[in-house]
């Protein structure tokens, strides 16, 4: 397209060059209808999905070089707001939308947003690499992170000796690191780990999972929850002792991409193609490559079914 423009502008006078550009601009809608995978694809949402979204975007660009993909990662809550206000096409979220967010979307559009599961993330508990602790009980997590344990009947855990640490560290306050309120991790943990209770007021809220790992790496008295795939050598992952299975599944969560699916027209072509790429074999290989868990086959089939629309 640029090639032809250069040729024509060299032939014609400056005025007709402008005229030609105008013609092109006016012809744009017609031309766009034939090849719909152009223009912008804006994604706004989860930080947990950020690296994956970027990897997928690169993969998608290989097949659709004309498309311009922008990815903002401000946390899952920003996805709900952006999708409702139509400032984004894709809303990656690391939790499901809550009723209030769904209501907001329904108010503005008249129908519910569609969630497409894309990957599974396993969260884990991390401490400083010099921490003497080697395991942690699943039941200790709620009293540790909660302002007031609702489900667990244990006392609040605030000091390291309550976790069985002796020596100098035992007397120290546990510095807890977690994600900011806008994140899906925060929402997921609040509803699944804390039974809806508040996080302790001295939870350090950080803007990303990598920031949590980094903060724990620098803090000898720190503990944090973040996605397993972010782990580095300077932190120690604490496996759960006791009821392994319950704990493992308790910290595993589905990651979604929310889209605006019109009840009659279905999902727009650009979003449709992007999501199909995510659910394709190479898309799911990227999931495994980045340390997340790919979707099981039947879930993938279900998700692809949801893409076809009603």
């Amino acid at each position: 397209m640029q090639e032809s423009f250069r040729v024509s502008s060299s032939c014609l006078s400056r005025f007709s060059g402008i005229f030609f550009v105008l013609l092109l601009v006016m012809a744009q809608p017609l031309w766009a209808e034939n090849r719909d995978l152009t223009g912008n694809l804006i994604s706004s949402g989860s930080d947990s999905l950020n690296t994956l979204m970027r990897a997928w975007a690169v993969l998608f660009k290989q097949d659709n070089p004309e498309i311009n993909i922008q990815i903002h990662a401000g946390g899952s809550s920003t996805a709900a707001v952006a999708l409702a206000q139509s400032t984004a096409h894709l809303g990656p979220m690391s939790r499901t939308m809550n009723p209030a967010e769904r209501r907001r979307f329904e108010q503005l559009h008249g129908y519910t947003p569609t969630a497409i599961p894309v990957a599974i993330e396993a969260l884990a508990v991390f401490v400083h690499r010099h921490n003497p602790l080697n395991t942690i009980a699943w039941q200790q997590l709620e009293p540790l992170f909660s302002a007031e344990p609702l489900c667990s009947e244990q006392e609040k855990i605030r000091y390291w000796h309550q976790l069985g640490v002796r020596g100098d560290l035992g007397a120290r306050l546990i510095t807890s690191y977690g994600r900011n309120t806008a994140s899906g991790t925060y929402g997921f943990l609040k509803s699944h780990l804390l039974c809806g209770a508040d996080f302790r007021a001295d939870l350090h809220e950080l803007p990303g999972a990598a920031a949590v790992i980094q903060a724990v790496a620098l803090s000898p008295s720190g503990i944090g929850i973040a996605g397993k795939q972010h782990a580095t050598a300077s932190v120690k992952e604490l496996p759960f002792n006791g009821e392994q299975t319950a704990a493992e599944s308790g910290l595993q969560r589905m990651l979604y991409v929310y889209v605006n699916s019109h009840p009659e027209h279905g999902i727009a072509a650009k979003e449709q193609a992007f999501l199909r790429m995510i659910l394709s074999e190479p898309g799911q290989q990227l999931v495994a490559q980045y340390g997340y868990v790919p979707l099981p086959a039947e879930q993938r089939k279900l998700a692809l079914g949801a893409l076809d629309g009603p």
């Binding site: 401000g74 809550s77 707001v81 900011n180 309120t181 806008a182 939870l203 350090h204 809220e205």
Partner: peptide
């Protein structure tokens, strides 16, 4: 740490009005 704590303890963190605005404005509908 953006911890909404009370009191003027020098060894504890705090959450300020400005930081709260910066953190929470994008998520508040």
């Amino acid at each position: 740490g953006n911890t909404p704590l009370l009191g003027f303890d020098p060894f504890q963190g705090m959450r300020t009005l400005t930081a709260t605005l910066a953190i929470e404005a994008p998520e508040a509908s």
